Amino acid sequence: MATGGRRGAAAAPLLVAVAALLLGAAGHLYPGEVCPGMDIRNNLTRLHELENCSVIEGHLQILLMFKTRPEDFRDLSFPKLIMITDYLLLFRVYGLESLKDLFPNLTVIRGSRLFFNYALVIFEMVHLKELGLYNLMNITRGSVRIEKNNELCYLATIDWSRILDSVEDNYIVLNKDDNEECGDICPGTAKGKTNCPATVINGQFVERCWTHSHCQKVCPTICKSHGCTAEGLCCHSECLGNCSQPDDPTKCVACRNFYLDGRCVETCPPPYYHFQDWRCVNFSFCQDLHHKCKNSRRQGCHQYVIHNNKCIPECPSGYTMNSSNLLCTPCLGPCPKVCHLLEGEKTIDSVTSAQELRGCTVINGSLIINIRGGNNLAAELEANLGLIEEISGYLKIRRSYALVSLSFFRKLRLIRGETLEIGNYSFYALDNQNLRQLWDWSKHNLTITQGKLFFHYNPKLCLSEIHKMEEVSGTKGRQERNDIALKTNGDQASCENELLKFSYIRTSFDKI
């Protein structure tokens, strides 16, 4: 039985969820670079991206490699990797027998973001014989899940209580170790020597080791999670996991709180800001991140802002960003909400898709409305799209047979046209069989910064309504002859009103 693990408890099935942008060198404390989270699957090609990484700022997932063999891993080693800020997950990587050479110096898994409450997941690794993470000293947050690894031993010899604050939620089941077939031998045991430290858990006094050649490092209890030197002297209180010299914040392997210019500090002093819960960055760093993602459509890219001495992905609820200094300031009234469309555009074809934009005031991208039916549609669209004030790209209304009016965009005031449909149009209306009105132009103002209007096959939309939009939106004169079809717009509506004058002759039985 794995020490510190839980057996036999019912657990939810383990679901495996399925960018080499360097964020800056980590400095003297770390020998390499800070790398983003990685999802490495199918083959070993991307694994080489770990070569210079000291910190993975995010998670590391290595999974679904069915053609790899043990010899493929023999020359692979990433000794610079010290810390993973989120979680480490391995799933069905064939041929991998140990992690001792792959990650010989991995010391800390912070667990800032977890995989279903777990910071370390080893699942269905069919050839893994031992973990071998002999320098792993601290899992700051989260638990361990090690399950269905039929060859995995050296679990009962690990004292997880020396690595985690609590072992109650560890789930370590259905491994070879369960069948008591392992016969784990710690260093020196074969020669009758006791080389590794022994600890007591559940009444068992057991030597602690990761492999037959690597003991588990056990520091004096007084050192807590700070770690200790090879001689057993406690590291500085700002260290986490390990250090090369005692009581020196510049000799830590990793930091308990924050890293700044080669030393570990309790908090980031001005003019620095907390970033990702582990390091200090200056304003320029946060500003660069903001600008890199301002026009990016890459998933996970955030326009970072500053709030409460932190550089964070977005302002919290009730705050909006001051564009001059990136500071989050309290909103006066309802907060603006910028919604970034991942692929640059979004099609609204149902109430469900409209709900995804609920509360958005600025759309960074283009909207395509293609709704053919739905219950209580006008009210639903207004509830979900009615706060949109600005669209950076274009607005396209296409084959939306259920629409009679666009009044559900009740606050839309600006279409920038930074991206144009077919390279020309910022407003595009095609084949809307029941569209009769755009907006009530006596109450609604709309500016279209650039781009043209396109109207074709809107049989109940009168040309007068379209011409009014040209005047109000500032697009009059931009359109070419064929942009607004004269014969297919309003051709099934009563669009022309003329005053009919009647004269009559009164007659009676005795007068003409």
Rank of each mutant, 00 (worst) to 15 (best):
Y30M: 03
P36K: 09
M38S: 03
M38N: 09
R41Q: 04
H48Y: 15
C53E: 00
E57Q: 14
E57C: 15
Q61E: 14
L63F: 03
L64Q: 02
T68K: 07
T68A: 03
P70Y: 03
D72K: 03
F73G: 05
D75Y: 13
S77F: 15
I82F: 11
F91S: 02
R92F: 02
Y94P: 13
Y94Q: 04
G95R: 09
E97S: 11
K100N: 13
I109G: 00
S112R: 13
A119C: 04
A119Y: 00
L120Q: 00
L128M: 09
L131A: 08
L136F: 11
T140A: 11
T140I: 06
R141H: 05
S143G: 12
V144G: 02
R145M: 03
K148S: 10
C153H: 01
Y154C: 00
L155S: 04
L155H: 01
A156F: 15
S161T: 15
R162K: 15
E168D: 03
N170V: 12
K176V: 02
D178T: 07
G183L: 12
D184H: 11
G188S: 11
T189W: 03
P197L: 03
P197W: 04
V200N: 06
I201C: 04
E207P: 03
T211S: 13
K217N: 13
V218F: 06
C219T: 01
P220S: 09
I222M: 10
K224L: 13
C228F: 01
E231G: 13
E231N: 10
G232D: 05
L233P: 04
G241H: 03
N242A: 11
C243R: 00
D247K: 05
T250Q: 10
T250L: 10
K251M: 15
R256Q: 09
L260Q: 04
G262R: 07
C264F: 00
V265P: 01
P269E: 10
W278Y: 13
W278V: 04
V281L: 06
D288V: 14
K294T: 04
N295C: 10
Y304R: 05
I312R: 03
C315A: 02
C315E: 00
P316K: 12
P316L: 11
P316Y: 08
C328W: 00
T329P: 03
P330W: 13
L332F: 01
L332M: 14
P334F: 08
